[in-house]
């Protein structure tokens, strides 16, 4: 790759500005500003109902009514259909797993397969199985016959097959056993190591703290704090005010 005229840090891979979103007639998000630098892991934090999942869905093009701008490497993707956004390099891992239970592991991966665009890390079935050796041992098992933890891995693996540049992870630690939570944390760091950027929504401060570089706290659909993980840990009053710690 030739070097860009601007240093990487100055041009975020994902830049969201003045994002507003609605469910029906109810406005859920109010002027959200948010950036994600290359190779960065950012945690969207906040209470239940603060707008974390809605932000990820809005970015992914899964909501009917969204305003503002969402730029993926400079190109505005707001208002585009979800499949278009996925092909542009955004991978979405939903909160309740949503694997295709009637399909085998290999077929689940086949649904996620997309041609690689530009400089995103390239994923093949073999490389995905290297990251998730468990899945490699159950290629022909139907999704519905897998354990919760295995399903969680499959949702991520399936998304990687689309060769994304950015991954949106919705509540990866919610409702899973402590042991799986640790595996998820290790996996996020692996993905970061592979050169992916990750935006995750998370309520568990220990988990967010262990994997993220920065935190962005939402409250009632607005950004209340945006800064490094360290600065959040250093100011317990923010945690008390917005995270219910």
């Amino acid at each position: 790759m030739s070097t860009a005229s601007l240093p990487a840090a100055a041009s975020p891979i994902l830049a969201v500005s003045r994002l507003c979103a609605w469910y029906g007639r109810a406005q859920i998000l109010f002027d959200i500003d948010l950036t994600l630098a290359r190779g960065e892991v950012v945690a969207l934090m906040g209470r239940n109902g603060a707008g974390k999942s809605t932000t990820l869905k809005a970015i992914m093009g899964l909501l009917d009514r969204v305003q503002g701008s969402i730029r993926l490497e400079g190109a505005d993707i707001r208002g585009k259909p979800a499949w278009h956004i996925a092909r542009a390099g955004l991978g979405y891992v939903p909160e309740d797993r949503r694997i295709f239970t009637e399909l085998t592991v290999m077929e689940n991966l086949a649904v996620g397969r997309q041609a690689r665009r530009s400089d995103a890390p390239l994923w093949t079935v073999d490389k995905v199985f290297e990251l998730f050796p468990n899945l490699g041992r159950m290629r022909n098992r139907r999704g519905g016959e897998m354990s919760g933890g295995e399903q969680q891995m499959l949702t991520v693996a399936r998304t990687l097959m689309g060769n994304p540049r950015v991954i949106l992870l919705d509540e990866p630690s919610e409702g899973v056993a402590p042991l799986i939570v640790e595996q998820m944390a290790a996996m996020i760091l692996d993905l970061k190591h592979e050169g992916l950027s990750v935006l995750l929504s998370e309520q568990n401060p220990a988990f967010a703290g262990a994997v993220s570089d920065r935190a962005c706290i939402l409250e009632k659909g607005q950004v209340q704090f945006d800064g490094s993980m360290r600065s959040l840990i250093d100011s317990p009053e923010i945690g008390r005010a917005f995270l219910g710690l």
Partner: peptide, 10 residues
């Protein structure tokens, strides 16, 4: 081994 792991994150 089966459940808690290190218990560090929850």
């Amino acid at each position: 081994e089966a459940y808690f792991g290190s218990g560090r994150l929850t």
